[in-house]
């Protein structure tokens, strides 16, 4: 036996839109995406919503639920106060295609501006490398990223200040960190991080880390270590001269 719940869902397109309210019956164990599907099936067959795995692994159903960037498939209704309408909006940082669906292709264009993986020469005659587990512990965390772009959505440099043409955002800083810290990689991205990707725009709000559905410690394990590498190169003559701590 379900109970009624109300959802304020943003409907519109690239030129704007607004909230429409829908009431539907919800049951124990449901997530927000289930409720959206109920609304779609019963009342709004033209409601656009992107989804795929329903298991928090494809990163397709990113949206803003009660104002916070979250995956719709991983937000259980019992975590929300259903006595008031639940607000569901598309991500604010990217162009709206329709309703809850946004165009995230900017991220893939920006990704191409990061220097690619460039491994050292193979360690063995058969063209393979030898890596210690300790050396890849750090970068393995970054491989958990599902590219849901919730961190890009919540980053105020992109969301509020629209610095898309200057700043690559937390997701792509994680990607750059995965390459830059890789034990086999020989490419140097530090100059790009400072001058081209403007890592200095990040003011460490930690919002990106807070919304990551994969619990990647984005700020502390990716962005700050990259900032420190920029400091090594440009702001710390003492370390350069004396190699001290």
């Amino acid at each position: 036996m379900g109970k009624p719940a109300t959802f304020r869902i943003w409907r519109g397109g690239p030129d704007g839109g607004g909230f429409q309210q829908y009431s539907t019956s919800v049951e124990e164990g449901m997530v927000v995406l289930d409720a959206i599907h109920h609304v779609q099936a019963e009342q709004a067959p033209d409601l656009a919503v992107r989804w795929n795995c329903k298991a928090g692994k494809c990163g397709s159903c990113s949206a803003e639920i009660n104002g916070m960037p979250r995956l719709m498939c991983m937000t259980r209704l019992n975590e929300l106060d259903l006595d008031a309408p639940v607000t569901v909006e598309p991500m604010h940082t990217f162009p709206v295609l329709r309703d809850l669906v946004t165009d995230v292709s900017w991220n893939f264009r920006a990704k191409k501006t990061i220097k690619r993986f460039h491994p050292r020469l193979p360690d063995a005659p058969d063209g393979t490398w030898r890596i210690q587990q300790a050396d890849v512990d750090r970068v393995q965390e970054f491989r958990k990223c599902i590219e849901c772009f919730l961190c890009q959505d919540v980053c105020h440099v992109l969301r509020e200040h629209h610095k898309h043409d200057e700043f690559i955002g937390p997701r792509l800083l994680v990607y750059a960190a995965a390459l830059e810290m890789h034990p086999l990689d020989t490419e140097d991205r530090v100059s790009d991080l400072r001058h081209r990707h403007n890592i200095g725009y990040c003011n460490i709000t930690t919002c990106c880390r807070q919304v990551c559905p994969e619990s990647i410690t984005i700020t502390e394990n990716a962005i700050i270590p990259l900032k420190e590498r920029v400091v090594d190169r440009y702001f710390d003559p003492i370390k350069s001269l004396f190699h001290i701590l």
Partner: peptide, 21 residues
């Protein structure tokens, strides 16, 4: 790379859909 065209461009101080404190 050029910036995408975004609907929410005129954010105002304190504007949010968050309902928590």
């Amino acid at each position: 790379m050029s910036a995408p065209d975004i609907v929410w461009k005129d954010g105002k101080f304190g504007r949010t859909s968050r309902r928590d404190s």
